[in-house]
Design a protein around this nucleic acid. Structure first.
Length: 433
RNA sequence: CGGGGUGUAGCUCAGUAUGGUUAGAGUACUUGGUUUGGGACCAAGGGGCCGAAGGUUCGAGUCCUUUCACCCCGACCA
């Protein structure tokens, strides 16, 4: 893409109400634009990042034997009445009537819809297990949306649902999904923990959350320093009594590392995390009330034993920036970057610079490298600031050193500038990617 | 859903206590010129129903009433 033709409206100033790094930089760098409370439009750069994240998820889901579907966003209220969640969700369900006066709901999650899709189609234990997922906008009419796209009313979520004929098989799938989710976050370059969690309103017998470690996270985690153990503080404390919980919370907060891990003998410490994934063992929580049955080996009707696996795609985009930014702006990781390389023409009036830049640009494009060419008339300093704000992992600076046959590679993460012989630049870039 | 705050140019904000020509700045944008390695400089421009409705007044961005939107703290949710 040519920067001169790209729609990337960067600004020097952040929206006055932005407090979180991801909100500030995604706004300033021209990725997102607020439309109303908790509602955002994604501009081209954000759309590219979202697509990159989706691709990683799709690949890992395919590896794990899952199939993608797409359920309708508008869902009949009758399904929610069947499961009993119409009341449970309350005002977070956005309800409305169509022209025939039937009531519908904008989907906040799709357990009911998926069960409805599968029931009466999958009717035998021989057809199990299956695991279906979708990548779909969700809508929850939150009482108080906040933190930019971190907690919007509308958000993009990957939601998967598995159907089994035994608890053992659900356990197997649950573990497989945990591995797939870990792989996804690792590939995206995130530092994260899998923690024991509360099953909350979704219901079910067990659940784990995937937490991206970040100081701005809304969740408090107790994590072990020496093993992989981690728990959401809510479940770690395990106290149902609120007052007691407060007391323990305060004391845990004050400890100097004398809390012992229940898994090994390591020390526990508290940290903050952003929940980007949550996997549940549902059992028959939805299949029973929705009367979704299959016939077992004995010809007896049984409700499906289910699991559900959610991953916040748009939230991951924000979490990447929460974990990877500095005072200059975004720092995208390799797998998440909207473009891998940005070519900066320092002086657009210098024919030699333009010629080399154009050649390199066409060359990399033909090799399917995602490359941006900054061919605008701005000065060098402006282009550098812009590249730092947007957060391309690497920029090739083609500037005054070209007289000596030298160009430079700028590493966004370290901010180091490395001189390279002009004729070696393509090879060097391909090495880095 | 309780408590608090803010709405003036695309964006960030002055101006409102004490009503008074044609509503301002910075930035962004357009044009011309000078610049060209860290968000340049000079000059000339375009851009506003002062959130909306009603009221007080000779006169309202400013005072009064109503209403809408957005933000923050909390509760809730995840």
């Amino acid at each position: 893409m040519r920067r001169s033709r790209a729609f990337i409206p960067t600004t020097k100033e952040a929206p006055s109400d932005a407090t979180l790094a991801s909100h500030i930089y995604l706004s300033r760098a021209g990725f997102i634009s607020q439309v109303a409370s908790g509602l955002y439009s994604y501009m081209p750069m954000a759309k590219k990042v979202i697509t990159k994240i989706e691709n990683v998820i799709n690949q890992e889901m395919a590896n794990a034997g899952c199939e993608e579907v797409e359920l309708s966003f508008v869902t009949p209220i009758t399904l929610w009445e069947e499961s009993g969640r119409s009341e449970k969700f309350g005002k977070e369900l956005l309800r409305f009537h169509d022209r025939k006066d039937n009531m519908f709901v904008l989907g906040p999650t799709h357990e009911e819809m998926m069960v409805d899709l599968v029931r009466n189609r999958v009717t035998s234990y021989k057809q199990l297990p299956i695991n279906l997922y979708q990548m779909k906008i969700k809508f929850r009419d939150e009482a108080r949306p906040r933190f930019g796209i971190m907690r919007g009313r509308e958000f993009l979520m990957k939601d998967g649902y598995s159907f089994h004929s035994s608890v053992e098989d659900l356990d197997r799938e649950f573990d497989a999904m945990e591995r797939a989710y870990k792989k996804i976050l690792a590939r995206l370059g995130l530092d994260f923990r899998v923690v024991e969690a509360d099953s909350g309103a979704i219901g079910g017998s067990g659940s784990k959350e995937l937490m991206v470690i970040a100081g701005s996270g809304e969740d408090t985690l107790a994590v072990c320093d020496s093993c992989e153990y981690g728990a959401n503080i809510e479940i770690f404390l395990g106290a149902s009594d609120e007052a007691q919980k407060d007391i323990i919370f305060t004391s845990v907060k004050d400890i100097k590392g004398d809390e012992i891990c229940p898994n090994c003998d390591g020390k526990l410490s508290l940290t903050k995390g952003i929940e980007v994934g949550h996997i549940f063992k549902l059992g028959t929580t939805y299949s029973a009330p929705l009367k979704a049955h299959y016939l077992d080996e004995n010809g007896k009707a049984q409700p499906f034993i289910m699991g559900t696996y959610g991953m916040g795609v748009s939230r991951i985009m924000a979490a990447i920036i929460e974990q990877n930014h500095d005072e200059s702006g975004c720092i995208w990781t390799k797998e998440s970057a909207p473009y891998s390389v940005n070519i900066i023409i320092s002086n657009i009036k210098d024919e030699a610079q333009v010629k080399l830049a154009e050649e390199l640009y066409e060359n990399l494009k033909s090799l399917n490298v995602e490359v941006m060419l900054d061919d605008t008339k701005e000065r060098f300093g402006f282009k550098m600031k812009d590249a730092e704000l947007i957060g391309f992992p690497y920029s090739v600076i083609i500037g005054k050193e070209l007289e000596n046959g030298v160009v430079q590679i700028f590493d966004r993460k370290t901010k180091e500038i490395t001189p390279i012989n002009a004729q070696d630049i393509k090879t060097k870039i391909l090495e880095l990617l």
